[in-house]
């Protein structure tokens, strides 16, 4: 199976318009589609409001009784569509919210996923951030509530955190509108692929498990060269995730390999990411 390369460039608007449409999002009129993820109580909706102002639209996810907010903004002459994902603690359980958020990040292939993280509860929030980093490498971490963290005597080495996570980290206090310009800038850089991200990928400490994973990753990458998240797909398959199995059967996974320009599949996803960018 060869990868389909669309006639347009990889950063052109809505190259994945059809899969977005299935998820109920029309990419029409927007240069980039941005997803907004995060734990509950992290000020995610404050970030959403700060970015979109009154340009919001509230509806439902297709076929689901889960509310979806969508908004838009313009930055440096480019238009962005921002999709607010349900607030979740994880993407590994089976709740509807998690499924929606997971499917959007995986199949919607947003140009950037902003993960809003609570600076006062970094460890717990990193659980979700690390899970998202396994699915997509186009991530910006919004380190929100930094003012509250300071009040509680918590200081965060943002550069170190950014280096560890391999993606831009923007400290902010969305309630005070602090950090919004920096966030927009980081989003733009990642969307236009001006910076190379090297997302942190979680390794398994269990040798047997890691071995099983690698066997599966080899096989996945042989069939889907350029798939940006082979390790994560392998993890989910070993967990018996039915929706991922289905995605393999109906070849939705194959579509995710675009914009693949790689000729040779690599074992190491990190290198693949760099090669693309």
């Amino acid at each position: 199976m060869t990868t389909q390369i669309m006639p347009n460039c990889e950063t052109c608007p809505a190259y994945n318009a059809s899969s977005l449409k299935k998820l109920g999002v029309s990419a029409e009129g927007a240069d980039y589609v941005i997803a907004l993820a995060g734990n509950p109580n992290t000020g995610k909706s404050t970030v959403f409001n700060a970015l979109t102002g009154l340009r919001q639209h509230v509806g439902n996810w297709p076929g689901k009784t889960v509310a979806r907010a969508e908004g838009g903004f313009t930055y440096n002459d480019k238009t962005y569509k921002l999709v607010d994902l349900p607030g979740t603690y994880s993407l590994l359980s089976t709740s509807t919210d998690e499924e929606i958020a997971r499917n959007f990040i995986l199949f919607g292939q947003p140009s950037v996923t902003i993960v809003v993280v609570d600076a006062t509860r970094l460890e717990r929030n990193l659980n979700l951030a690390l899970q998202i980093l396994q699915i997509t490498d186009r991530v910006v971490v919004a380190l929100n509530l930094i003012d509250e963290a300071e009040r509680h005597g918590i200081e965060i080495d943002v550069r170190h955190l950014s280096r560890k996570l391999g993606v831009p980290v923007v400290p902010m206090a969305a309630r005070q509108m602090q950090g919004i310009p920096e966030l927009l800038d980081a989003v733009e850089q990642v969307a236009r692929q001006k910076i190379a991200t090297k997302p942190h990928r979680v390794r398994q400490t269990d040798a047997q498990l890691e071995g099983a994973l690698n066997t599966l990753i080899d096989q996945i990458e042989a069939i889907y060269p350029g798939l940006p998240n082979a390790r994560w797909v392998a993890l989910r398959l070993l967990d018996g995730d039915e929706s991922i199995e289905q995605a393999i059967r109906d070849n939705r996974l194959g579509n995710l390999t675009q914009p693949a320009v790689l000729q040779q599949p690599t074992r190491e996803p990190l290198i693949a990411v760099e090669a693309i960018s």
Partner: peptide, 11 residues
């Protein structure tokens, strides 16, 4: 099951 997963999600 899901109870166990929920607890783990919360850390």
């Amino acid at each position: 099951g899901s109870n166990r997963r929920r607890l783990m999600d919360l850390g």
